[in-house]
Design a protein around this nucleic acid. Structure first.
Length: 724
RNA sequence: GGGCGGUUAGCUCAGUGGGAGAGCGCAUGCUUCACACGCAUGAGGUCGCAGGUUCGAAACCUGCACCGCCCACCA
């Protein structure tokens, strides 16, 4: 850390320095004045361009590019600064851009950072014409006391009167404003504390390069490294009330400074007392940088510090990667000798529906407590919505209250599923069932019926997907997978099918199998969902039979290989396709909702028929069928029937004569769709290049599709012919 | 000036080399024994534009347009 007079961003309103990272830049329309500085020898002199004529009074030189042929002859000569009539040298410096303005730059080391640098390099004096409040100083004569923006047009007018304004042009420029008060900042020279960053940054760069700290998503790594590798010294002193006061004491006698944890009695150099503590405080982000260990008792060696430092994951917004994340990594390495965390997860930035960033100071934010309590959405809904909608690609998230409706409904769905399962668990003892009746289903075993093994298989795959995506920090995918599985698979299909076993007459064994499976899967789903919806999952879990005190400390669900059953998935998927096709046909035909139907099924083979027949009670129940008939694979289809095809199974629904035209229309449309698709596949398979270059698996898929489409086309043609 | 992200159904967004998806909204029908904050069925898209690579592009490359963010001492 070093101390000295340096040019920093100064807020003339708050009277404090401001970090480079806390400046808000804004494009504004300004004026670029071309001003002539006459030669001291009575010659033409040189024309400079400036947006800030009021700083002309502090000019100490005019600089040009050393190679600039227009001005080479002037270098070393003197020109006269207008208004103050001060002779100053024309100097050459490569930092001047000959392309900009007139190619001649007035040098004002007291009020411009670049000029300050050039001035120092050339040993030029520094003049000050603006005070800490941005007003013209007492030495500026008629301008004394004017605000900088007030003085600007006055100086310009005076230059004009002197005939020295060659040109004025409108010019877009960016001004830096104070993040706190929006006052235009002023480059200003004061006593400041700085941290030399190079040594701190180097190990922090290495930690990320070597993968000891990983960013998610990965692209933020580059953002971090680019900044760290071009890091500049950090001005850490602030003239504000709140913060850590800098622990340095000044000796008023010998001017010595001493850094100390305790207040020193007297000056260690000259013995003078009392000493005066530095008034300035540390930049708030300097204090925040020590957060990972300072909050745990550091510098004392506490049990908390030993246990919780370093931690695993930091979740934050991209807006503070430099301000906070980088500083924590640097300080962790500096003070603790370790990285403070291994993974940095950068979440989406929440926007309003209009696309504005939500923030308190902009007044664009919403109050999460209001959303949870007053609007009645609850904490789980808010949490789930934000996770569901925040994509891994880290698209900004436009938040509308409407998206909470979706999740509130999901919440409600879960609650009702739980109610349903609970009210159907009477007489069910999971401990006994697990040991005897149900037990873990063996692959291919027949101890649980198909639909139970089907949902267990799907559930097991879900456990694996959820686990993998959590480990990959793909939280939005986790939320989506669980939403789809719980609502689309478990509630919409499994619960509906299980009702047949619960309420029908297939026997007590089937009922107990259904109970065991409903409970097992629901209980597991709650554990999977718990990280995203902690409250409702705990509530539901407590209402179900369970072991352990809280879902929070229950083990993560397992995914036994034996529960995955490809064959039973194929079979039940076909059942579902058949049910869906019958409903679709029924709706298409406008069959009255209360009317019973009598579908006729024709499976492609005996085995398919046998399996479907075994599950026919599900079809009957879920389609409100009165009866279900199976045709032999080679039997001719019924005449006067609407027909459709589901996963190879032909479905017929006898209809009255009045419906024939409608059915013909439907089939004709279907036929033309099939023919279009088949034409595409045919042309692809007819392409020699495709056959030669495409991977064999892809060609195989196309061949199979061609076969399927051809078969389906034949079936539809047959159905059409049967209508004639 | 440099960099990054985005542009897919009316809205909010998934989908990274082989058959365009979800939720909401919309249409139609349902007080079916958990849920109308629900159930069922369905309609809806030249995947920003122009080139290129490839047997094949919403996806890969180049350029452009528009939206957003970050960085930068051009007076």
């Amino acid at each position: 850390i070093y101390y000295g007079k340096r040019m920093i961003n100064w807020c003339p309103h708050d009277l404090t320095s401001v970090s480079d990272l806390e400046v808000d830049y804004e494009e504004v329309q300004g004026t670029l004045y071309h001003v002539r500085y006459p030669g001291a020898d009575g010659g033409e002199g040189i024309v400079i361009a400036t947006q800030r004529p009021e700083t002309i009074l502090a000019d100490v030189a005019v600089a040009v590019h050393p190679e600039d042929p227009r001005y080479r002859h002037l270098v070393g000569r003197q020109v006269i600064v207008p208004i103050v009539d001060r002779p100053v040298p024309v100097i050459a410096d490569a930092r001047v851009d000959p392309e900009f303005g007139t190619g001649a730059l007035k040098i004002t080391p007291g009020h411009d950072p670049l000029d300050n640098e050039i001035g120092a390099a050339h040993g030029l004096p520094t003049l000050i014409v603006l005070d800490e409040s941005g007003r013209m100083t007492a030495e500026t004569g008629k301008y004394a006391g004017m605000d900088r923006f007030e003085a600007r047009p006055v100086v310009a007018a005076d230059l004009s009167t002197l005939g020295l304004i060659v040109r004025e042009e409108p010019y877009m420029t960016s001004v830096g404003r104070c993040e706190r008060c929006q006052t235009v900042l002023e480059p200003y020279i004061t006593d400041q504390w700085f941290v030399r960053m190079r040594e701190l940054a180097e190990p922090a760069v290495r930690a990320v390069r070597e993968g000891k700290v990983r960013f998610h998503p990965e692209r933020w790594t580059k953002v971090y490294l680019d900044w760290m590798e071009n890091i500049r010294d950090w001005n850490i002193s602030r003239r504000l009330w709140w913060g850590h006061q800098i622990p340095v004491w000044h000796c008023p006698a010998c001017r010595e400074m001493v850094a100390s944890r305790e207040h020193p009695e007297r000056c260690p150099k000259c013995g003078h007392a009392p000493l005066r503590q530095e008034e300035q405080i540390l930049d708030t982000w300097f204090s925040s940088g020590i957060w990972p260990f300072a909050t745990l008792g550091w510098p004392k060696d506490t049990p908390d510090l030993r246990y919780f430092f370093p931690t695993d994951v930091l979740i934050t917004d991209r807006g503070i990667i430099f301000l906070w994340v980088a500083r924590m990594i640097m300080f962790g390495l500096e003070f603790m000798g370790q990285i403070p965390f291994t993974d940095v997860y950068i979440h989406s930035t929440v926007l309003t529906l209009e696309g504005k960033r939500m923030s308190k100071s902009l007044g664009t934010g919403i109050d999460p407590l209001e959303m949870m309590d007053q609007r009645g959405y609850g904490a789980d809904a808010l949490r789930f919505a934000l996770i569901l909608r925040s994509s891994q690609s880290q698209q900004d998230l436009r938040f509308g209250e409407k998206m909470l409706d979706d999740v509130r409904n999901f919440n409600n769905k879960i609650w009702n599923i739980a109610r349903f399962v609970r009210m159907n668990l009477e007489g069910f003892d999971p401990a006994r069932e697990a040991a005897s009746v149900a037990g873990p289903p063996a692959r291919g075993g027949r101890d649980l019926s198909s639909i139970n093994r089907w949902i267990l298989s799907r559930y097991t795959r879900t456990v694996r997907e959820v686990t993998r995506n959590l480990e990959d920090f793909e939280f939005d995918k986790v939320a989506r997978i669980l939403y789809d599985f719980i609502w689309g698979t478990y509630a919409d299909w499994y619960v509906e099918l299980a009702k047949v076993d619960l309420f029908g007459q297939p026997g007590d064994g089937a009922r107990r199998h259904a109970q065991w499976t409903l409970w097992t899967v629901l209980e597991g789903m709650m554990r999977l969902l718990h990280p995203i919806m902690p409250h409702i999952t705990e509530e539901v879990w407590q209402l179900l039979p369970h072991t352990g005190e809280s879902i929070m400390v229950s083990p993560w669900p397992e995914s036994p290989e034996a529960w995955i059953d490809d064959e039973v998935e194929r079979v039940v998927d076909r059942l579902i396709a058949v049910i869906h096709a019958i409903r679709s046909l029924r709706a298409d035909l406008g069959v009255d909702a209360k009317a019973a139907i009598a579908p006729v099924l024709q499976a492609p083979d005996g085995e398919g028929r046998r399996v479907l027949e075994a599950m026919s009670r599900y079809v009957v129940a879920r389609t409100r069928a009165r009866d279900l008939t199976f045709l032999a694979p080679d039997a001719s289809p019924p005449a006067r029937a609407a027909a459709t095809l589901a996963d190879g199974v032909e479905i017929f629904l006898p209809v009255g004569a009045g419906e024939i035209e409608r059915i013909r229309g439907r089939l004709t449309q279907e036929l033309s769709r099939l023919e279009d698709e088949l034409a595409r596949v045919d042309s692809r398979l007819g392409n020699a290049d495709f056959l030669r270059r495409a991977p064999t698996q892809v060609v195989e898929v196309e061949r199979k599709r061609q076969g399927d489409l051809t078969e389906r086309r034949e079936v539809v043609r047959r159905h059409l012919a049967a209508l004639a």
